[in-house]
Lab assay of single mutants.
Amino acid sequence: RYTFRTRGPEQMKRVVEWARRQNLSYRVEVHGDEYIIHAE
């Protein structure tokens, strides 16, 4: 189980790509310009 905090969509997309390659399920929360990605 991982939690990532990123700023801006570019970093968020990179984390999502990584999670997909690992076959993890993930969800993204948006708080202003901060993205929180939960993957497991």
Rank of each mutant, 00 (worst) to 15 (best):
E10V: 08
R27A: 06
Y2Q: 04
R14Y: 07
V15C: 11
R14N: 06
G32P: 03
Q11V: 10
V16F: 04
V15Y: 10
P9F: 15
L24S: 01
R5T: 09
Q22S: 10
V28I: 13
R27M: 09
P9Y: 15
E29L: 08
Y35A: 05
A19I: 15
I36L: 08
P9W: 15
P9K: 15
V16I: 14
R5N: 04
S25T: 13
I37A: 00
I36A: 02
R7L: 07
E29K: 04
R20D: 05
W18T: 00
A19E: 01
E34F: 14
E40D: 09
E17Q: 10
V16G: 01
R27V: 13
F4N: 00
V30Q: 14
H31D: 13
A39R: 01
N23S: 08
K13N: 09
E10L: 09
I36S: 02
W18M: 02
Q11R: 08
L24Q: 01
T3K: 07
T3M: 11
Q22G: 05
E34W: 15
P9T: 13
V16C: 07
E40T: 11
E10G: 07
Q11D: 10
L24M: 14
A39G: 02
Y26A: 04
V30R: 14
G8A: 14
S25Y: 12
I37P: 00
G32T: 04
T3W: 06
E40F: 15
T3R: 08
V15K: 02
R20K: 14
R20W: 05
R7D: 05
E10Y: 08
R21M: 11
D33R: 07
W18R: 01
V30L: 11
Y2L: 09
V30D: 04
H31T: 07
F4P: 00
R20A: 08
E34N: 07
R5M: 07
G32R: 05
S25F: 13
Q22A: 10
T3N: 03
G8W: 14
R7H: 10
E17S: 08
Y2P: 02
V30H: 09
R1P: 10
Y26V: 15
V30F: 10
V15E: 01
E17A: 12
S25Q: 12
F4D: 01
R27G: 03
V16Y: 02
V30P: 05
Y26L: 08
R5W: 09
R20N: 07
W18G: 00
Q11M: 13
A19L: 15
E29D: 06
L24Y: 10
V16P: 00
M12E: 00
E34R: 06
E29S: 07
H31Y: 12
R7P: 04
R7C: 11
Y35Q: 03
S25P: 05
E29G: 02
K13P: 00
Q11A: 14
V16A: 03
Y26T: 09
N23M: 09
V30N: 07
L24D: 00
T6I: 14
E29C: 10
R1K: 13
R5E: 03
V15M: 06
H31F: 12
L24G: 01
F4M: 03
Y26W: 13
R21D: 07
D33N: 11
H38Q: 06
L24H: 03
V15R: 02
R21G: 08
Y26H: 03
A19S: 03
R21W: 05
T6G: 05
A19W: 02
G8E: 15
V15A: 06
Y2V: 06
E40P: 04
D33C: 08
A19H: 02
I36N: 01
R27N: 07
E10R: 09
D33Y: 07
G32Y: 05
H38D: 03
T6V: 15
H38T: 14
V15T: 03
R7N: 10
L24T: 01
T3E: 07
Y35E: 01
N23L: 06
T6W: 02
R7V: 09
N23P: 01
R1A: 09
E34M: 14
R21S: 14
I37L: 04
R1V: 12
V30M: 12
E17G: 05
G32D: 09
Y35T: 04
E10N: 07
G8I: 15
D33K: 08
Y35F: 11
S25M: 11
V30E: 08
N23R: 10
R14K: 12
E10W: 07
R1H: 13
M12P: 00
Y35M: 05
T6N: 02
V28Y: 03
P9R: 14
T6K: 02
L24A: 02
R27W: 15
S25C: 08
A39I: 15
R5A: 04
V15L: 10
M12Q: 02
R14W: 08
H38W: 12
V28D: 00
H31S: 12
S25K: 13
K13F: 10
H31C: 12
R5Y: 13
N23T: 03
P9I: 15
W18N: 00
I36Q: 02
E17I: 06
R27E: 08
T6F: 08
H31E: 13
T6P: 04
Y26P: 03
V30W: 07
I37Y: 01
R21K: 11
R1Q: 10
E29T: 09
Y35D: 01
S25H: 13
R1F: 09
W18E: 02
R1M: 09
R21A: 13
Q22T: 06
L24P: 01
A19T: 03
I36D: 01
R21F: 06
